[in-house]
Design a protein around this nucleic acid. Structure first.
Lengths: 336, 336
DNA sequence: TGTGGATGTTTAAACGATTAAGCATACATT
DNA sequence: AATGTATGCTTAATCGTTTAAACATCCACA
């Protein structure tokens, strides 16, 4: 491996100490009063030798790595992939690099990921926390590590977060269905104590109550994260047979997609037989027949904001930032 | 920030030198003949203090970071997102971490990404090279940096790569269309000199020739990467009007999706009016009506293999590994 | 002639780990 | 008693930066 060029090489070539070279490389030549000619020579030598600073050495010395650890549920999920891309682009603007890990909604995987990233001295975390991550997040906070939660948060923990106003999103989506004349609206959600899921359920529930419909019409199906396919299949088969619902509201992107598969398989006609609202944009929604009406999250804003907040924390603010963003209901043909 | 625990802290607590602690932490207690009791004490202290090695310091000293740099075209693209996930999972098994960057098919972005990653001393690269990256790849090779190209490669460069057998994929897909009775088959590809695109075109061309159809039926539309939407729109509108094609073969995932949008917008009926074959699996393909027939790449294999090859290179093999994987044609309703 | 302030440069410690080389002791062998 | 060797531990250099502190000139001014 053709030996890398170091500060020392430049110093030797120019005939000065490494300190001067370091100053010049960091643009401190004014402040540190480096002579004009020397500055020139160093610049030239650096160019000649094609010097590239060793970030590892720099990190060790400075105690910061300009690296962000990003933990998502699954980077293969388009929602998180898109978010990751936005975060990556935003981070690089500030000379930060992102290391991504997927937790699969599993808190012990999440913990071990965080440990790995910590050992690599990331300067801060952006985390989509899994169920049961409370303790892990608390530990990070105790160590005074900059953390921003995203997509979900823990109401009992005083953390920074950037999330959707989930309550409002499902409240409005449900109200929309009711306005369209739906009465027997079911919600399909994950079985999860996480606040984003709870809020989505609450929005649905309260929209029904607020509309004057009877409480008996509240019907939430909670699906296990690891058995989405099977359970969804069952639900849809049942719905088809018993015709006990006239609308469905899905609580996440993955659930929506799985639901659409099952709807199609059971030949349920949308929107005649069933009105449907999905969560998060997705190409699959566009090609479903009819195109799906869905709750759209402001991904761009969410990603950028989370980076902004994190960098602020890294810079050392003590104030906690909690952001709730507004959804947009994209109306298309899947509601009658 | 609650000061991190270092080797020194353990050494002090136990009353030995850091060398011994390092040996024990790295499981060299046998080889380096560390006393039994001391080993115990060190282990205990490490546990008590919850010692976590500082990877940065370790990297600086060892000259390797256990980090892989992954450069893809766009991590928000499901194809690359999925690939990234597989690579991430595989890498972590070997205690490697992955830093991902998106080049947007832009060679200068790709170069600056590589530089950023290099400064962070990644041990090797897995790269989906953009057009014009030849020079960049050559430079990396000159520096004897482990590199594995993926998805595409440069035939003039003797690099490691793991790619699809693209020629065969489109050859067989085209033959399949011909067998089904299609005669006026068009291919929609990117305008690109990259070998994967060229091979895909060649497969299409030669399949037509091989089938005895006239050369005049070869018709490839090359779309600019940055104007996919507009150009696709035009093409489909034209096809609809002039009815000069009875089948279409898309050359990539993104083109397929864009194409499907345009097909739908122009109310072209598949497969009656037009048979269609897409590239790479995608949820959108499933919900298109009818579900799309497509060329499926063995993503899992591609990702795992690329990591395997890269780690081999990092370990210091001199042999070059070039892998071509076989596609699978997933037949569904989009070809008459 | 000495004091003080610019100006320009070097020295050396530090970050936290790894590791070759050296030191000390105990014991066995001749 | 002298030598060899196995055992157990320490020392200190090293990786490539950063940066506080010290040092060395030069010039001005009283």
């Amino acid at each position: 491996m053709g030996k890398k060029v170091s500060l020392k090489d430049i110093a030797t070539k120019v005939g000065v100490s490494t300190a001067l070279v370091s100053y010049v490389m960091n643009g401190l030549e004014k402040e540190k009063r480096v002579g004009h000619e020397v500055v020139e020579k160093i610049r030239e030598a650096a160019k000649d030798l094609n010097y590239q600073p060793n970030q590892i050495a720099r990190s060790l010395r400075k105690g910061s790595t300009n690296t962000i650890g990003l933990i998502v549920a699954d980077i293969a999920n388009p929602f998180f992939a898109h978010l990751a891309r936005i975060i990556e682009d935003e981070a690089i603007k500030y000379n930060y690099v992102v290391i991504i890990g997927s937790s699969d909604e599993n808190f012990s995987k999440s913990e071990s990921l965080a440990e790995t990233l910590l050992n690599r001295q990331v300067d801060g975390f952006i985390i989509v926390p899994a169920e049961g991550c409370n303790r892990q997040i608390e530990l990070l906070l105790q160590k005074e590590l900059p953390v921003v939660l995203i997509d979900r948060h823990f109401p009992e923990l005083n953390t920074n977060y950037v999330v959707l106003d989930n309550y409002r999103a499902t409240f409005e989506a449900t109200s929309y269905l009711i306005d369209k004349g739906c009465q027997k609206i079911e919600m399909i959600a994950y079985k999860s104590s996480l606040i984003h899921m709870q809020d989505r359920m609450r929005g649905y529930r309260e929209a029904i109550m607020a509309s004057g419909l009877t409480e008996k019409l509240i019907h939430i199906r909670e699906i296990d994260y690891h058995q989405v396919g099977e359970q969804m299949e069952k639900i849809m088969a049942e719905l088809k047979k018993k015709k006990e619902a006239d609308a469905i509201l899905f609580a996440t992107n993955a659930l929506s997609v799985a639901g659409l598969y099952a709807i199609r398989k059971n030949r349920i006609h949308v929107p005649d037989e069933l009105s449907v609202i999905g969560f998060d944009g997705n190409e699959a929604f566009d090609f479903f027949d009819p195109p799906l009406t869905f709750i759209q999250q402001p991904l761009e804003e969410m990603g950028k904001e989370s980076v902004r907040v994190l960098l602020e924390q890294i810079q050392g603010t003590s104030k906690t930032v909690q952001v709730k963003l507004k959804h947009e209901l994209i109306c298309r043909g899947s509601c009658r």
